[in-house]
């Protein structure tokens, strides 16, 4: 149950970042409620940010493994 704290913080940080990035991209002029086009944009943005996170995670861990194999101290 200590383990889950790192995982929980990770999930929390991912939600916070998604919130920040998607609010910036989709809610350009805050009005009296979220419009349906803002909601569509948010749904897309959530999917894309999660996908970007997956792409980046894969690229980073692949690179990390490669660097550790070749030169242990360079990164």
């Amino acid at each position: 149950q200590i383990k889950s704290e790192t995982a929980l913080m990770n999930a929390q940080e991912l939600i916070n970042k998604t919130n920040e990035k998607c609010f910036a991209k989709c809610v350009l002029k805050p009005s009296s409620s979220l419009t349906s086009s803002e909601q569509n944009c948010l749904t897309n943005c959530l999917g894309r940010y999660m996908e970007a996170f997956t792409i980046v995670s894969r690229a980073y861990t692949t690179r990390l493994a490669k660097e550790i194999r070749h030169e242990p101290s360079s990164l």
């Binding site: 990770n10 990035k21 980046v56």
Partner: peptide, 12 residues
């Protein structure tokens, strides 16, 4: 946690 933090930073 360090790796996760780097991944969040790079994603951003």
């Amino acid at each position: 946690a360090r790796v996760q933090s780097t991944i969040h930073q790079l994603t951003s």
